[in-house]
């Protein structure tokens, strides 16, 4: 009896410890890695400077947020973007504006999405957090080239609704520009999981 008891105690303790382990588990660093002889090098999102809806210059390395949430969209997109934006809104409402998160939504429509149109979109969708930036590239290809570093694709396609075929990921990166997690921006449950990952990232030392 005594032995059973102690066995039970041991296994309970083990379970609790393991659980604690899992709680402290860090998010993995995603993407390709290489080895320079002494260190593992993780792939990084290359630095860039673009313009946001308030005509501010936004440089990735100057953003101070511990977490960085990114997505690709365009204002006249009739298919997945509204869903992605609804979920960006949900993430933003879950954490409040004081949370240490920067949001970058990259517009894929260089032709139509002028600064003033992005500004109108920002206001009419109902964003108020100044750390949400709707980004316009400096030339038509800057954002399309950036997409691959965010594991996303974007190609012009006249047969696609709205004229651009693109992926709807919402991506999470840290302040060292490493990708840490992602979710399908059209899927609420997947975005709920991403919200937990964002919490984990914010709690990292």
């Amino acid at each position: 009896m005594k032995r059973i008891c102690s066995n039970f105690l041991f296994s309970t303790l083990l379970l609790i410890t393991l659980n604690a382990c899992r709680h402290n588990e860090k998010l993995p660093i995603l993407g390709q890695r290489s080895w320079n002889g002494t260190d593992t090098l993780y792939s990084q999102i290359p630095d860039f400077t673009m313009t946001d809806q308030d005509n501010q210059k936004i440089q990735l390395t100057l953003l101070k947020g511990k977490a960085n949430v990114a997505c690709f969209f365009f204002t006249s997109c009739p298919t997945i973007c509204p869903k992605v934006m609804r979920n960006i809104m949900r993430i933003n409402q879950h954490f409040n504006s004081a949370a240490d998160i920067d949001y970058l939504c990259f517009s894929l429509d260089f032709k139509r999405d002028s600064i003033s149109r992005l500004n109108e979109y920002y206001n009419k969708v109902g964003f108020t957090n100044p750390r949400i930036h709707l980004m316009r590239g400096n030339d038509p290809d800057q954002i399309k080239n950036l997409a691959s570093y965010y594991m996303s694709t974007a190609v012009e396609d006249d047969s696609a609704p709205g004229g651009i075929n693109h992926s709807g990921w919402i991506l999470l990166s840290d302040h060292q520009r490493h990708l840490r997690s992602y979710a399908l921006g059209t899927d609420e449950k997947d975005v709920d999981r991403l919200i937990i990952d964002i919490e984990k990232l914010l709690n990292e030392n």
């Binding site: 009739p78 298919t79 509204p82 934006m85 609804r86 809104m89 009419k124 969708v125 109902g126």
Partner: peptide, 12 residues
């Protein structure tokens, strides 16, 4: 996709 599954919309 735009107007919401419950026709709730999103902002204006």
């Amino acid at each position: 996709s735009c107007h919401g599954h419950e026709a709730e919309g999103l902002g204006q």
